[in-house]
């Protein structure tokens, strides 16, 4: 079998050495075992070890290797190389670049922490567990699976313009995960926390987040449900 070559155009920036970012052209011959983009990146790094990117589990669970692939955010480890010849890689848009494809996610996690991503329940814990009916548990499907890769929030123009004030799709999906949880007792506080023109209502439902989510989740629907709950308590 002939070797397959993939041509990369990669965003490179080392603040210690480069005056400004540039796009590097580099090609690599794939081995038959190279199935996903991450495999090719690991091979690239063995050729040029100055290339920086995050990776960990290499199977779409840790969310480390999120990047902008041919103009669309995604996980390198889940992106197939089948039939692909040219790939343009950039860091996630809208976040400060630390080096090459590595971005500073502080702002993203700040927003995530701001929605208190943990169960608030002041009753003494029962001996075994806090029970839910299957229907109540069903509501959490499509919410808890988020791996916080930041693909969604960094594809959202509202998050680009107001990353310090708008919670972003990932944070709001997590917010609804706890608002929807029948074991949580802080629903009112959570809704109060989000009733704000910036924190929640910067979302104009353009669904970029849904388009890019590597886990197939739907933050727009979760945001809509938060709004529905706010309407239900207001009217």
């Amino acid at each position: 079998m002939s070797k397959r070559t993939v041509n990369f155009k990669i965003y490179r920036y080392d603040p210690d050495r480069d005056e400004k970012p540039y796009m590097q052209d580099i090609s690599i011959d794939l081995e038959p075992s190279d199935k996903k983009l991450l495999d090719a990146l690991v091979r690239l790094k063995s050729k040029d070890d100055s290339l920086s990117f995050r990776r960990s589990c290499r199977e779409g669970v840790c969310g480390s290797d999120a990047m902008n692939i041919n103009g669309k955010n995604g996980l390198a480890c889940l992106t197939s190389l089948d039939g692909v010849e040219n790939i343009v890689l950039r860091p996630l848009p809208g976040l400060p670049v630390i080096r090459d494809l590595v971005v500073d996610m502080t702002q993203f996690f700040k927003q995530y922490h701001s929605i208190k991503p943990y169960l608030v329940n002041n009753e003494p814990a029962p001996e075994r567990e806090r029970l839910q009916s299957p229907e109540e548990r069903e509501e959490l499907n499509g919410l808890y699976e988020c791996i916080l890769c930041a693909c969604c929030s960094t594809s959202c123009p509202s998050f680009w313009w107001n990353p310090d004030k708008f919670v972003g799709p990932a944070g709001l999906l997590a917010a609804y995960r706890f608002i929807a949880d029948t074991r949580d007792q802080a629903t009112t506080e959570r809704l109060d926390n989000l009733e704000d023109p910036y924190r929640l209502f910067r979302c104009h439902s353009i669904m970029n987040c849904v388009d890019v989510c590597p886990k197939g989740l739907n933050p727009t629907r979760a945001i809509g449900k938060i709004k529905d709950m706010m309407v239900a308590r207001a009217v």
Binding site: K165, D192, E195, D196, P197, A234
Partner: peptide
């Protein structure tokens, strides 16, 4: 400091 929490938005969104 970054300040948020104006506690409006829903009315405008519905409006």
């Amino acid at each position: 400091r970054i300040v948020v929490g104006a506690h409006y938005g829903l009315r405008d969104w519905m409006g």
